[in-house]
Write a protein that binds this DNA or RNA. Structure first.
Lengths: 164, 164
DNA sequence: ACAACTCCTTGCAATACGCAAGTGGAAGGA
DNA sequence: TCCTTCCACTTGCGTATTGCAAGGAGTTGT
């Protein structure tokens, strides 16, 4: 039996949670950019998210179990946001979104590099990345391979190349 | 170089086109439900889309190249909507959305059956389905296997089972 | 004590959404 | 021909969401 408003279709239910212009952007920044606090997410936002929208999305995403928030031991006011098992399993979805966007929109070269790597790596790469996210966010053991570092290095190389 | 408003990230650009609560629902109904006209999409909508929203989305999706509209030869007023190459390539994305929704929301059993088949079939099934959609919507040759019929049969079997 | 920092909140305007009713052209029948 | 029905949308209007700019409250560092 369905739980929410419109219908019990799994695609619809996914859209009801994530189908807006900002939720997946926030998750993307936590996931691929390793932004872990409100301030980082606000200041280093590529798309310039507004502060009230960010606050609202952080609330909603934590309420629906896609993020968790724990206090920063060094700074009583700060919260550190982490991905959950559910949001880590969005990796294949985001990879496909990146792949589709690369083909059917006009992305910038620098910002496409990570999407390209993720696409070419396929499921094995996604699984390695998910294992690493489980380490970074859920305290799982550190895997041998750091997909995060590979993606970041490729991105920075593209940035440097563009800057020349 | 980016083309649109917020950033050139391919994930963001995909969200700018599809990141609302209705666009993917419409595409899903055309794709999996084979609804080809305004009336079919309105009347047989599981989620009860409003007529003005549907009209707006059909306009926007055709404008951005995810649907095409041709007049119905038997009925001058009717338009027949078809998927394009770009929207057919959303099959893996929708399959992943269904898979994620099945795991992390509370979908109804009947409406999950297709998502389950798509998930278990994986990339080979998606490719067969995309070939069939190219036949149904773009006039490509008819493939040997009809994934559409398999999905529909499974759905109707689940419906009948529920009705007992 | 004071200033700077950090996480939000508030006010307000613009846009999007949702419902119900209506419009205008086309098909079909008497 | 004229009338009814159908069909694809549009319009009006109230509500919710979004976006921008400014402000406020708790926290840290000096």
């Amino acid at each position: 039996m369905p739980q929410t408003g419109r219908s019990g279709c799994p695609i619809n239910l996914t859209l009801e949670q994530l189908g807006d212009r900002w939720s997946l952007i926030v998750i993307r920044d936590v996931m691929f950019g390793n932004r872990r606090t409100y301030g980082e997410l606000l200041e280093r936002s590529e798309e310039g998210i507004a502060s009230n929208i960010l606050a609202d999305r952080l609330k909603r995403l934590t309420a629906s179990g896609l993020l968790t928030r724990r206090p920063d031991p060094n700074h009583r006011q700060k919260g550190i946001y982490s991905l959950t098992e559910a949001s880590i399993q969005l990796v294949p979805l985001l990879a496909h979104m990146g792949a589709w966007g690369r083909r059917h929109t006009r992305p910038s070269r620098e910002l496409s590099v990570r999407a390209e790597l993720l696409e070419k790596g396929g499921a094995p790469l996604w699984n390695a990345f998910m294992a690493e996210l489980a380490h970074l966010h859920l305290g799982a053991p550190r895997p041998a391979r750091s997909v995060f570092a590979e993606l970041q290095a490729a991105y920075e190389k593209a940035l440097a190349h563009r800057a020349l």
